[in-house]
Design a protein around this nucleic acid. Structure first.
Length: 260
DNA sequence: ATGGTTGCAAAGCAA
């Protein structure tokens, strides 16, 4: 089973690219972020035509997450628990059959948090605290669990081409990185790092200043696997070539292959 | 380099 995650930066602007990716790679499950669409505006039928079931948590103008799956999406839940007042569309969960059992999959879009020193950064840290609680609760089910999405966290210096350029950015603050480590230390495996150690492994390149041409990237799109899921991990990858295509997202797909 | 680029949606915000 192949599970991919991709911040597509607008599903309407990226529909043809997304459909081409699905036709080429045929992932079983896809976690999308930044769909930038309300549910009614999501091109559900275009994905259904390729054989996918669709679940969305949309929002007008920005944010928004979705799950696509060839097999049915069961027990879909929308929203990150812990703050009834939080209206941002950043979290959707579903269970999908994997062989003779089920895997729980989350598509998440963690707040950017810039600029630091503002309520936006406080919101990011509060959101991560809520994520920690939800992840711990999900782990108690002892079902294979995959947290996939745009975490907006650069975990280590080697996850950036120019780490010094990010020291004042919310993505690389000590508090952001500490919250990431606490999450990982619940027992998750960083799937990309398990398969691809070392520098030069990036998932995002800014649109500005020719960042991609200079390979001035960062690794912020992650797939965290519970121990039950990590036991099934066969391989993972990053599809950088999508960043070189016409009208690309600034993020590229990250994927894992699990034994079923 | 106090700019630079893109999406949404129709001016300015978010990233």
């Amino acid at each position: 089973m192949i599970i991919a995650t991709w911040n597509i930066n607008g599903v309407k602007a990226r529909l043809e690219s997304a459909l081409a990716y699905l036709r080429q790679h045929s992932p079983d499950v896809v976690c999308l972020q930044e769909i930038k669409s309300v549910d009614e505006g999501f091109p559900t039928s275009a994905f259904q035509d390729l054989g996918y079931n669709v679940a969305t948590l949309g929002q007008k103008g920005f944010n928004g997450v979705a799950l696509l799956s060839k097999s049915p999406l069961e027990d879909v839940t929308r929203g990150l628990p812990g703050d009834e007042l939080d209206q941002h569309a950043r979290w959707i969960e579903a269970s999908v059959a994997l062989g003779d059992r089920m895997v729980r999959i989350v598509s998440l879009y963690l707040p950017n948090g810039n600029p630091i020193g503002t309520e936006k950064f406080a919101y990011k840290l509060a959101w991560m605290k809520r994520m920690q609680a939800r992840a711990a609760a999900l782990l108690e089910d002892e079902m294979p669990l995959v947290l996939a999405g745009d975490f907006n966290v650069i975990p280590e210096s080697e996850d950036a081409k120019r780490p010094q350029a990010w020291v004042n950015d919310a993505l690389f603050q000590p508090e952001s990185r500490a919250a990431w480590r606490s999450l990982v230390n619940l027992g998750f495996t960083d799937a990309t790092r398990a398969c691809h150690p070392g520098p030069g492994v990036y998932t995002f390149w800014d649109y500005q200043a020719g960042a991609f041409q200079k390979d001035d990237g960062i690794r912020i799109d992650h797939m965290l696997l519970s121990s039950q899921a990590a036991d099934l991990l066969r391989s993972s990858g990053i599809d950088r070539d999508t960043r070189a295509q016409e009208k690309p997202s600034d993020h590229v797909p990250v994927w894992i292959k699990l034994d079923s």
